[in-house]
């Protein structure tokens, strides 16, 4: 019966086809690793580990060290975390524990819309609305009150690490708050009731039971946010001021790893310059890859519940 055999072949072919497309995902990741390493090879050979610790980035003399951009990335991302974690978790507590449904749904929706706004629109807003406000209001205030710290000293430019940190904070807030909210909603009510029945207030119940129960999921949310902040490109590029110098002051213009690529990649003429930029892209890829793996593992763990309390 040739007809039947044909159907069988079709059947096999379809399954194989889907597998082929699924494998493409692995091929793409593998391809990224391969081509990025290949592209970065000249810089890897020339500078080795010095690339990570040298502060000299000089396209004319072809000497490249990525330290200022690594610093800019870490400083702006950490600042973003410092701002976004309390805000995001606080908002998640309100949305998961306190808000009545008729407030919860539209507010959660609005916060999720924040995640849909294109990065370049954040950059535009950051450049023309937020940065002038930072220069005129926030930075003078910080210098007056916290100027004894080197972080808050120096002329107020508006654009700089502080501006990048604030924009990144706004951009990772939805990630942190919506993942934390999901995690808190997954905490069984029996846990809350047990604490309330002991005479705990709503806050005590949240702080001592709900948040610890969802702890690893919330940490996962934070790492996910960190991954986004490190790799976030356009908004950071537009508000960080693009300076090749390194300064401790948060008011000072700087560059992130992503922003230096945007600024110089299309104009890089020498092989070594291009390779150095590709190496930066590769480092960025590796770091975000590791953070993402870590975050997903943590979030997955919470979805299964803490050890020893799996329900039948």
């Amino acid at each position: 019966m040739p007809g039947k055999r044909l159907v069988l072949y079709g059947e096999r072919a379809f399954g194989a086809l889907t597998l082929g497309f699924a494998l493409l995902v692995l091929v793409l990741i593998g391809g990224m690793v391969y081509y990025l390493i290949q592209g970065a090879a000249p810089a890897l050979a020339e500078f080795g580990w010095r690339f990570l610790v040298s502060r000299r980035w000089d396209a004319v003399h072809e000497v490249f060290g990525a330290l200022p951009f690594i610093y800019g990335t870490i400083a702006s991302s950490l600042l973003a975390l410092v701002l976004a974690v309390p805000l995001g978790v606080g908002a998640a507590v309100y949305l998961a524990e306190l808000a009545p449904p008729w407030i919860r749904t539209p507010l959660s929706f609005m916060i999720e819309l924040l995640a849909a706004v294109p990065s370049v629109v954040y950059g535009l807003w950051g450049l023309f609305v937020m940065a002038p406000w930072l220069r005129a209001v926030v930075e003078p205030w910080l210098e007056r009150h916290l100027g004894f710290l080197p972080l808050f000293r120096g002329p107020a430019f508006g654009v700089g690490i502080l501006a990048a940190g604030v924009v990144l904070a706004i951009m990772i807030l939805p990630t942190i708050s919506s993942v934390s909210r999901e995690v808190m909603l997954a905490v069984p009510d029996s846990q809350r009731e047990a604490m309330l029945a002991l005479g705990a207030t709503r806050w005590e119940t949240t702080w001592k039971v709900v948040i610890p129960y969802g702890r690893s999921g919330i940490i996962g949310a934070v790492i996910l946010g960190l991954g986004r902040a490190l790799g976030e490109t356009m908004a950071a590029t537009m508000v960080i001021g693009n300076s090749l110098n390194m300064s401790l002051s948060l008011f000072h213009p700087a560059n992130t790893m992503a922003s230096i690529i945007v600024n110089e990649f299309a104009e890089a003429v020498t092989r070594l310059h291009t390779a150095a930029l590709i190496e930066i892209a590769f480092i960025l890829f590796l770091v975000t890859l590791i953070l993402n793996v870590l975050a997903r593992l943590l979030v997955w763990r919470v979805a299964r519940g803490p050890r020893g309390l799996r329900r039948e």
Binding site: A22, L23, V25, L26, L28, I29, G31, M32, Y35, L36, Q38, G39, S119, L224, G227, R228, L230, G231, E232, T233, A258, I261, V262, F265, L277, I278, A281, F282, L284, F285, T288, L289, L291, N292, V293, R296
Partner: peptide, 27 residues
């Protein structure tokens, strides 16, 4: 295999978009 693919797909969504640009440039 399916677990690995699923996991890598999740991780893929977190790859910075500028890295994707550089990758396509080189290829």
């Amino acid at each position: 295999l399916a677990d690995v693919i699923r996991f890598m797909t999740d991780v893929f969504t977190g790859v910075p978009s500028v890295v994707i640009g550089v990758f396509i440039y080189t290829v």
